[in-house]
């Protein structure tokens, strides 16, 4: 799935071009088993997120009720109906991280970024999420920012970490 979506990935397209690519992708995948989840995933890769209009477009192409498509979108946490930031911060909520300050990190991040979990900052820079154990238990608490993992995070150092992304 990774490689397929890469193939559809490119920067700086107009909305119309994105929709065209999504349409082509739907045509290719519509008959495959469990295609709805795959299609939504790839559409998100192309468009960045899944606004209702886009879900409506997909529902119509697949001849499915919008409520079913929306049900799937809101069931899976990797699908998002809101615009996502350039960087996604995921705070590990595995047991180890949780007991060693994960909760505090979330509180601090909410404060610093002025958003709730699941939201994106006004400047479109960061999206804040929680995640299940990422396997860095030995070095808890951990967070990831896009593909990069930060271990033994000190809540007081969060601001410094974020600064490196501006």
């Amino acid at each position: 799935m990774e490689t397929i979506s890469k193939q559809y990935k490119s920067k700086k397209e107009t909305d119309q071009e994105k929709y065209e690519r999504i349409e082509a992708m739907i045509e290719e995948y519509r008959e495959k088993e469990g295609s709805l989840i795959q299609i939504l995933h790839m559409a998100q890769e192309i468009y960045g997120y899944l606004p209702v209009e886009l879900q409506q477009f997909i529902a119509r192409k697949l001849d499915k009720p919008l409520s079913e498509v929306y049900g799937v979108t809101t069931f899976y946490s990797f699908l998002s109906t809101k615009p996502r930031g350039e960087y996604t911060i995921r705070v590990c909520m595995g047991t180890a991280c949780y007991v060693r300050g994960g909760k505090k990190i979330i509180e601090r991040l909410k404060e610093v970024l002025d958003i709730d979990v699941g939201e994106t900052t006004a400047d479109g820079k960061f999206t804040l999420e929680v995640t299940r154990c990422i396997g860095a238990c030995g070095l808890a608490p951990a967070i990831t920012i896009n593909d990069r993992v930060y271990k033994q995070v000190n809540p007081d150092k969060l601001k410094d970490i974020l600064k490196t992304y501006y």
Partner: peptide, 15 residues
């Protein structure tokens, strides 16, 4: 349809 998941899930129209 069923929207969202777990404790937050509810039955209703899209969005």
């Amino acid at each position: 349809n069923v929207q969202k998941r777990g404790f937050h899930s509810f039955v209703g129209p899209a969005a």
